[in-house]
Amino acid sequence: MNITDEEIFDILDGIASEELLQRHERLLQEDEEYQLLFKEYAATHALLEDLPMEKTAVNFTDKLIDQWELAQEPEVVLKPKSHLHLYFLAVMCALIVLVVALSSGMPSVQSVKVPLDFSVLTNMIHQKELINFMLIANALLAVFILDKKVFKPYFRM
């Protein structure tokens, strides 16, 4: 004779069978507990039927379209390409080639018997100041690269 919760909601939704409606009417008159339960469900159902539709903010669509356009843009990662290490290597190579060529006496040039005087250049190379200058320049370049590639990324992290 009992009516289940599901059946009560069928009654409230208006989809109950005739037989169920008759049982419900009978129980409403006879069973006080059922009466209370039904009233409780009916009150909640009535409140829910008036559940209002919430309104979005006025600029909702504009914000959404802006976001959508941003999401569609391809992500451009601008990473400046540094060729500093290449310059450093090139300078080092040039220096090594120059030093080797000058210290070996330029045999290929001598075989052609062209009177070339490298003594001034050799003297310059053998000057202590120039060597020191070169060493300092290379050291500075090395420190600069080390700072850019290692220290800056580390401290930024």
Binding site: D5, E6, F9, K39, A43, T44, L47, L48
Partner: peptide, 29 residues
């Protein structure tokens, strides 16, 4: 879905009763 909806409505009714007690009916009608 039907079973879940029924349970959800039942829980809501219980919650409303807990919040409002006997005032529930007067809030609606």
């Amino acid at each position: 879905a039907k079973v879940k909806l029924c349970r959800a409505r039942k829980r809501l009714a219980e919650e409303m009763k807990r919040l409002l007690g006997n005032e529930l009916h007067s809030l609606v009608y």
